[in-house]
Design a protein around this nucleic acid. Structure first.
Lengths: 307, 307
DNA sequence: ACTCCTTACGGAGCACGTAACTATA
DNA sequence: TATAGTTACGTGCTCCGTAAGGAGT
């Protein structure tokens, strides 16, 4: 058994059991990958693949198990290579982050600015995706870690660290009647058409249940995955926005006004998560530190101060 | 990086950083292993070994990390091979057990008898050792699992399952005055010279603290790692034996008599432990089941009935 | 007809063994 | 001097690529 055979197995699965495609991704010809797979099956003495004639269409039970172990083995290889890189190219390398739009635009910039100052030689790569995609990315080691508010805490293969807590603000065009509501309550907010995050993003579901428990039916006229879209439609006059507080900036949004809603809506925790068996290089650990540190400096509510 | 290079690394460490010896164990010549190690270092770009001239005398920090990952990688390879074996040679294979003398002689025979009936094709290999050695054996995958009373529960890389609980009996030659003591108490036992298990074996330390807490100083004239030795010296008239209850059998020991001490000495739990990332073949799982099951059938106290 | 996988075959590269050299104890 | 490790070099194996053949869509 060779690592290269396991590599082919993983690539095969990731290419939807298309040997040709897998080979391309590995910069090999089909026949090479085909041989790897045949060799594996021969050595193990078991069918690993379900076939339709010559075509591979899936894995057998044994194949699933082997694939699982193959992934682990390749992850370990990466760890070993990272140990090497850490000593050779100390302070330089690649940092691959997966995150949502909101984090990427409104939270990470400050963190990344500080990080770049400490590690100017580290190349950054930000992958944007849905929370589900972010889990997938970090589980398959296509990013070093993912940062977002949902999903991350629940996966057993991930180590998830709470970074900071946040809540929501209401935004509206200056002069909008909602801004004059006193006191501002959930009931009153429900009298206006609302624009907020799509289910599965940025704590939207969490918020929804809060309304439901209060017996309220908010009139959500539009949902979006990212804050900029919400702002855009608030500016269009389509309604009142409910966004993460850190996504409002008086400089960038001089035409909008906010009201803090943290006393009436649930607090959210943003997590950073990485694969629990992953070797973390020094700069990767530092980045996580900064994530917590920077938020603290900015005066946002840090987790440890709560509870 | 190739698995074979990692194999050489692990073999090197296990042979005390003697390349020649490592090569022999791998059925290779020195130069081959030497090259593997050189290749690894070159690919990682880092010193992995501390050297004294040409001789390797230990690992650098990086080397330690790589070794650790190498072990994991090789364990995964074994898992994959086991998946294959499970499907090819179903019901046959090798079962490597590590255990202490007492378990091997007085508990396992019945389990193994039942196991052999179900899996006559599985070869058995029993490795005897101290609890510390048993941990080492199972951590380095030189046995499939270890069975004993100490140590196993405390290692994070092991999955330890409580099998059954037991306590001690006193044994003495027929007619020995201790057998007439009524009621039999810890104090009275302390009036006789005692023979029991060596510290670190079969719950000896646990028992010792019980005496100490009662303010008693037992007169232990001899300790031994296994029960047969204890019986031998009891027969010599050297003193009174304190042994695991299951180690007495009226058939084998017609010249000895016992008194149950379970009301005055602490209960012990015997564990079976295997490496937590290990793939368990069907017959290996079955064996663990049997361990619990057989003890129940024999009327011994099963864990779940307690507490 | 096109795509996809397998098999056969050849060349380049590499892994291991032999052996000579170097260094440690 | 004996033991241990590195380096050089040759041979045989193997890995990948080319190419031809069969199987599915």
């Amino acid at each position: 058994m060779e690592l290269r055979q396991l590599t082919s197995l993983v690539a095969l699965e990731e290419s939807g059991f298309n040997v040709t495609l897998a080979a391309k991704q590995l910069f090999l010809v089909q026949s090479a990958v085909s041989q790897h797979l045949a060799q594996l099956e021969q050595e193990l003495g078991t069918q690993l693949f379900m076939r339709k004639g010559k075509r591979l269409i899936g894995l057998t039970a044994a194949g699933e198990q082997v694939l699982n172990y193959a992934r682990q083995a390749l992850a370990i290889r990466e760890n070993i290579l990272d140990v090497g890189r850490e000593h050779v190219e100390e302070g330089s390398g690649l940092l691959r982050i997966g995150t949502t739009h909101t984090q990427a635009c409104y939270v990470l910039p400050a963190v990344i600015r500080a990080f770049r100052k400490q590690f100017p030689q580290v190349n950054l790569q930000i992958n944007q995706g849905t929370p589900q995609q972010l889990v997938e990315l970090v589980v398959t080691d296509r990013v070093d870690f993912s940062i977002c508010t949902e999903e991350l805490g629940e996966h057993s293969t991930l180590t998830a660290i709470p970074c900071y807590r946040w809540n929501r603000s209401l935004i509206a065009l200056k002069g909008h009647p909602v801004l004059s509501e006193k006191p501002l309550s959930l009931e009153r907010i429900c009298n206006y058409p609302l624009i907020t995050y799509t289910f599965g993003f940025t704590g939207a579901n969490h918020m929804q249940t809060t309304f439901a428990r209060a017996g309220l039916q908010p009139n959500v006229v539009l949902t979006a995955a990212d804050t900029d879209v919400i702002k855009t439609y608030v500016r269009e006059g389509m309604g009142v926005g409910l966004i993460a507080s850190m996504a409002y900036s008086p400089d960038l949004d001089p035409d909008l006004e906010t009201r803090d809603l943290s006393h009436m809506l649930p607090w959210e925790t943003t997590w950073v998560a990485y694969h629990k068996d992953k070797y973390l290089r020094r700069y990767q650990k530092r980045f996580i530190d900064l994530l917590e540190q920077m938020i603290l400096d900015n005066g946002a509510t840090k987790l440890t101060e709560e509870s």
